[in-house]
Design a binder for these strands. Sequence first.
DNA 1: ATTAGCAGTCAATACATTAGAGTGCTAATA
DNA 2: TATTAGCACTCTAATGTATTGACTGCTAAT
Lengths: 342, 342
Amino acid sequence: MLSSRKQKILRAVVDEYIKGASPISSGEIKNKYFDDVSAATIRTELSTLEDMGYLLQPHTSSGRVPSPLAYRFYVDNFLHSKSLGPEEIEAINASFNNKFLKVEEIVKTAAKVISDITNYTSVIVLKNINKVLIKGIKIIALDNTSALVIIITDSGIIRDKVILVNAEDESFLNDATVLINKIFAGRTLGDVKTKAASSRVDAELNAFKELLNSVMNILLSYEEEEDSIITEGEKKVLDYPETSLESAKNFFSVIDDKKSISALICDDADIEFSLKIGKAETHGIDKCAVVTAKYTINGKEIGHAGVIGPERMDYSKVISVLSYVGNTINSIMENKDEEDLD
Amino acid sequence: MLSSRKQKILRAVVDEYIKGASPISSGEIKNKYFDDVSAATIRTELSTLEDMGYLLQPHTSSGRVPSPLAYRFYVDNFLHSKSLGPEEIEAINASFNNKFLKVEEIVKTAAKVISDITNYTSVIVLKNINKVLIKGIKIIALDNTSALVIIITDSGIIRDKVILVNAEDESFLNDATVLINKIFAGRTLGDVKTKAASSRVDAELNAFKELLNSVMNILLSYEEEEDSIITEGEKKVLDYPETSLESAKNFFSVIDDKKSISALICDDADIEFSLKIGKAETHGIDKCAVVTAKYTINGKEIGHAGVIGPERMDYSKVISVLSYVGNTINSIMENKDEEDLD
DNA sequence: ATTAGCAGTCAATACATTAGAGTGCTAATA
DNA sequence: TATTAGCACTCTAATGTATTGACTGCTAAT
C-alpha cells in the first residue's frame, strides 16, 4: 500500500496534470501542496513512485506524468463523492424533458448531452437487440403506392420506415396488418432472425408475400451494427492540446470503425463502470481513456454508454454524468414499460 | 484572350497541381507537355500568366500554383465533356434503389453518395420549406399515452414524431385527426408559421388543445435550420495533404455553423452550378473551393447541394456527380408527386 | 521569338549554441 | 533515519548559421 504522503503526491500529480496537461515538477508540487517538506524530498518520492509504475517521465530532465496505473488508482481511491452542479443537472433534465419517446431520439439526446457536458466524445451502443420483444406492428397507408411500417417493442424501441406497396383497397392493408401481427407479435427480434432462413411462406400468405418481405427486411435491419451505435462530439478531440493531426486521424479511424468501437464500449465484465487506459486497452486510440457504464432498464441490460477523452480527463465529472443520464433514461423508460399496447 | 500556348500551359499547371498538390515548375511542364519549346520560354509565359492574375508563386524560387481565377478559367473552358464511369453510375443507382421514400432518407443518401464518390465533403440544404404544402396529417395511437404523428407533404417530405397524449378511447384520436386535418391540410408550412402567432383556439377546439399544440410544434420545428442541412464526409478534409490541424479546426467550425454553411451552399444566382474559390468567397474556409448545384423537382427549386473540397479538386467529377444525383432525385420524386393522398 | 546559361532567391535541412527547467546524487543536518 | 541544500548533469526548446537544391529572372546569342 502507498504511504499517505505518496498518495497525496500521486493525487497532486494527477490533479495538476488534469488541469494543465503538461509534466509536473517536484517544485510545483511543493509550492502548491506541501509547506512542511522540501522539493528534494518530493523528488525522492516521485522517483520511487516512478519505480512502482505510477509515474512516467517523458525525458530525464522533465517532470512526471501519470501512468495508466496512476489514473486507475486515482479513480479507485480519490473520487467517491463529487457530484454534478445544479446547472448541469438542469441542463440534462431540460434535454430530455419528455418531448419525445422514440428510443432513437432518447439515445441521441443522451449521447449529445453527455458529450456537451463533459466536453469529450460520447458513444452509446445498444445491445441485446435480439432479445427485444415485438409488441406490435402497424402499417399505415400513405398514398396508393406507399405505406409507413411502425415497429413497437417492449423496450420502447420504435423504428418506422416507408415501404412501397400496392394498396388499392383499404382492407388489404388491414388484413395484412392482422396477419403480420399474428406472425411477429410476441416474438423477439432474434426469433425473427433465425426464422427468416426457413422462410415458411404458406399458401395463404402468398397474397401478402411482398409486403411480408418488406416488413421482414425492416426487422432484420435492426441487426446491422451501425444502427445501434450513436456517437457524439467526435470533433472535440481537435481541441485537446495533446492532439496532433496524426493522432486525430487515428482517432477518427477507430471511432468510425463500428466493430472496434463497439468492442471498446461494450465491456462484458459485470461492473457498473469500467475504465480503460493505455493504447493496448483503447483499441489503438493513443493518449486517450475510455470510461464506460452499463445502462439498464428495469434491471435489464440494454446497452453501454461511454466517454472517450484524454487520459487526463475529469473522471469524476464523467462518471457523474454517465450515472445521472443513465438514471434519467431508466426512469423515462420504466414508466413507458409498465403500460401495454392498446 | 489567352493565346493557345498560354491556355495549354495554364491547363498543364492546373492539371498537374490537381494531381500532385505542389507547385509546378517550368521544367516539369516542358517535360510533360512540350517537345518543341524550352523551359525558358515557358518561364516567360508563366511570368506573364502570373502578371495576368492566373498564377501565384508561393515564394520567388518556387514553381507556380493556380489562382482562383485559373480554376475558374479551367472550369469554364476545359471540362465540358467528361462524364461518370459506369461503375460510379452503378454505385449511385444502387444507393437509391427505391428502398425508401422518406425525404430525410433520400437526402441523406444523396449526401452520402456524393461524398463517397467524390471523396470530398458534401452538403445538402433544403430550401423553400415555407412553401411546402401539407397534404395530410395522421395520428396513430401507439399505446395509452403516446401516439405517432405523421406529416405528409406535397414534396414528399414526411416527418414523424412521437407525442404524449391522453388517448383512452379510440374515437378521441380519430376526431382529433379529422379536426387537425381540417385546420392544416391544404396549407403551407409558411401559413402555419404565420398563423401560429394569432393562435386562434376556438371553444370547440379546447378539448384538443394540447394535442393541437403538439402537432403545431412539430410543424413549426421544420423551421429550425438544423433540420434542413445535411452534411456528409466532413472528416475527409483530414486526408488532403494541404490540411493542417489549424485549418482542420477552422474547417469544422465553419462547417458546423449552420448559418454560414447554409449561406455558402445556397447561391441565389439563377445558374445551375456555381463555383466559389478563395477565402473571401468560401466564408473563411481556406484553400478550399465549393461547387454548388441547384436541385429542382418538377422545375421547382427545392434546395442546393454542394461539394467542399480542396481548390485543386476534380471539378469535372464533382459536377458530373452533382448533376447525376440531382437528376436521380428528380426522377424519384417526380413519380411520387403525381399521385394523390388516399 | 526563342533559347542556353548563369546569377540570384528562397525553403528546407542539418548542425551548433545557448538558456532554462528539472532531475539525481551526495554530503551535511536534525 | 529522514530530510535537506547544493550542485552537476541531462534534455528540450529556442535561436542562429551554413549548406543544399530547386526554381526563377535576366541577358546575350541564335
